[in-house]
Amino acid sequence: MNQDYDEPMFIDLVSCEKGCPEDQIEMEIRTLCLGQPFAVLATQGEGQPYASLISFAVSDDLKHLAFSTPAQTRKYNLIIKNSKVSILVDNRSQQPESINLISGVTITGRARALTDTVEIDNWSRLLIEKHSYLQKFVKSPSSSLIVVDTVRFFYVRRFQEVYQWTPKDLS
């Protein structure tokens, strides 16, 4: 732009004119969700939010997220009564030195306990592929497989930069 004389010529700006930040953010969300083994699940009941740590896996299109839980747990019972959940995935344990290097994604969605055996088979495989040590836990008859159908991803990076992303447009 010829108006912008003050524009310095000596910083080689990465050209992102053609939508590269979007692709980059999508990639960062995928990296987090596929790479992080654990997440924080938020459920609710009687107006009370309740957070728990889970081992999880996601589908390739990020439309679904799965974890396993014994049916006696508080989180399981809360989900049965109110399917609206939120999940936080972040990399803070890998970046203790700099707040600017931490990124996290808050996912909103609807959780359901699986009953269909084909679905259970598929999701168990995915979960065990990522967490092989959980085989016994996942396969246990007392455990239930929960799938969250994701709605929105709120991605935060560099402490304060926030984007909302919806997986349905993933091509």
Partner: peptide, 16 residues
């Protein structure tokens, strides 16, 4: 002037 194509699935919520 290319004012950028917005990815329909991505919306900025907070810019720094």
């Amino acid at each position: 002037r290319d004012h950028g194509k917005k990815h329909s699935g991505l919306k900025p919520r907070q810019l720094v």
